[in-house]
Design a binder for these strands. Structure first.
Lengths: 148, 148
DNA sequence: CTTTGTATGATAATCAAAAACATTATAACC
DNA sequence: GGTTATAATGTTTTTGATTATCATACAAAG
């Protein structure tokens, strides 16, 4: 945990930013809720428990900043809200998601399944891929068994 | 063109909806701008040229309806707006997009590149895939040559 | 200590999308 | 045809997430 904060601090400093107390609290909340996909509002409420003086705008600014630095990925599952997801350390690419259309559960997939597909895109369409995002819609295991 | 409208009409009727004049004009605009990725506001403005009495809410409602019927796909490229994209006839799946990070151009890919990946997901994660969306971020051919 | 730039918090502004609601078609029935 | 129920529309208002503004606090550098 502290390691990861340390590395995020270094990433910020590498880009001439500081890890202020507000930013650190925000990062901690993100680390503690790594499995979830929190909206800015979600993050704000959790941060507020630890640091009540913080303003909503600061949380938005921090999330934006961390996204620019590729520490966070900003995702959108189609509800009207942006959600934020910590990028795994060392991951070049966005990880993928399985979104259940029944219960709304979101599962993550770490594997990079797209290497071959990326090659096809680069060759056939002359497009230099820097990142990708892939989401599957469907029905999760739990909801499948409930239906039977 | 008329064929496709006819089939959309049938799809609507199959679900107990009517192809009203407003809906038809909206569909025509979508067909005429198939290559673009129009926002609701874009569609509204274009529809208004042909049918000035129409209200914005009707366009929103129509786009929502067509999305539910899987005639349209609602996509989000990260700007704050939803965009709408006609699903190709007979296509089971959403088609893919290449988004250029330099100039913002969006290219479409029709091929279904994910059959193998889908099998992996279904087997390894016990997740029944009904649809997917895949977007590549990168640099398009034009912008690559400009840089040299 | 003073200056300069950066970060913050409170608040207001923006802007897409949804909701409300009254009105107008459309269809079904007698 | 007239009548009623239902669906669809258009106008307007509201919501709700995100951004912008701006005065203040802070920190680094001289």
């Amino acid at each position: 945990m502290e390691n990861r904060i340390q590395r995020i601090k270094e990433a910020l400093q590498g880009a001439q930013y500081k890890l202020t107390p507000q930013r650190e609290v925000t990062v901690r909340v993100l680390l503690e809720n790594e499995r979830d996909h929190l909206s800015a509002e979600d993050v704000f409420l959790k941060v507020k428990d630890k640091y009540p003086e913080i303003g909503l705008a600061t949380v938005y600014r921090t999330l934006e900043l961390l996204s620019e630095l590729k520490i966070l990925d900003k995702i959108n599952f189609g509800d009207g809200v942006s959600r934020y997801d910590l990028r795994k350390e060392g991951a070049k690419h966005f990880h993928h998601h399985l979104v259940c259309m029944e219960c709304g559960a979101v599962e993550e997939i770490e594997e990079d399944l797209l290497e071959d597909v990326e090659k096809i895109v680069e060759n056939d369409h002359n497009f230099k891929v820097t990142d990708h995002r892939l989401t599957f819609h469907g029905i999760c295991g739990d909801c499948q068994s409930k239906k039977e």
